[in-house]
Structure formats: C-alpha cells, structure tokens
C-alpha cells in the first residue's frame, strides 16, 4: 500500500515508495520485455536523453525495465539477486500469451484467410 500518495492522517503510509509504485504500474509487462530482448543489437535504438528520468535516462537495465542514476549504480544492480532472477526468466521460454491460452482451450490456430499480397 506504499504506492499511494502520502497523507498526514495515515501514519503507516506517510511516504510514497517508488519501489511499490514500480510494481503497480510503472514496469513493462514480461512479454514486452521479452520481445525487446529478442531484437538484435543493431535494431535497438540509442537511449534518448530524458531529463525526467534518473541519470537522464542513459543508464538502463533492459531485463528489469529500470533507469539508474549512473554507471556504478547500474552495475551494482546487475549483481543483485532480483536482476539475476529476472535474467533467468527472460532467457527461458516465451511468456504466456492469449494465443497459448486459446490453443490450450482446444482451439486451432487462427484462420486469417489467404494473404492478399501473395495473390497479386
């Protein structure tokens, strides 16, 4: 419940912890991160300079979708258990999707009809 805005009357959640807000809605979904990681190195864009993000958005961890203030903090993050667990998940099989759910329910692959471009 730390993700809510601080309110004076409630002693317990006086501060809004970024850690909790991140888990709530800031972080990217697993499948989005997985797709991003599948892309080859050349296709990845250079990190844009954003003054609203920590360290101008230059120190980024792709696996955990987090920005860091500088190189040392980021490298420190790479050593943490959280990060290593996350890397392990991302190296594993593709995250569950709606298509997987449909196939598991006993449906066939979606039928999109003949491709229009191939006919011409």
């Amino acid at each position: 419940m730390g993700g809510k805005c601080p309110h004076r009357s409630v002693k317990k959640r006086r501060y809004s912890h970024k850690q909790f807000r991140r888990a709530k809605f800031l972080v990217k979904g697993d499948d989005a991160v997985y797709d991003e990681l599948l892309k080859p190195e050349e296709q990845r864009k250079e990190l844009p300079v954003d003054e609203d993000l920590p360290g101008m958005g230059q120190y980024y961890c792709m696996h955990c979708d987090r920005y860091f203030a500088n190189v040392t903090v980021r490298d420190e993050h790479f050593k943490t258990k959280k990060h290593r667990k996350r890397v392990k998940i991302m190296m594993g099989p593709r995250p569950h999707t709606q298509l997987d759910a449909d196939l598991a329910a006993g449906m066939g692959m979606p039928d999109n009809g003949p491709k229009l471009m191939s006919m011409s």
């Binding site: 692959m109 039928d111 999109n112």
Partner: peptide, 25 residues
C-alpha cells in the same frame, strides 16, 4: 488448462481441435 496441456494431463493433439478457431474473415 495451459498447465494441464503442458504436462500431458489432457489430450493435446487431436483432429477435433481444428474446428473451433478464430476466423478473421
């Protein structure tokens, strides 16, 4: 269902699964 499929609890490959599908046309 995803778990049951993956671990061979349910039938996985069958011709009857071909009928129900999303038809985007």
């Amino acid at each position: 269902k995803a778990y049951r499929r993956l671990h061979g609890k349910d039938m996985t490959q069958d011709s009857t699964f071909e009928f129900e599908r999303k038809r985007n046309r």
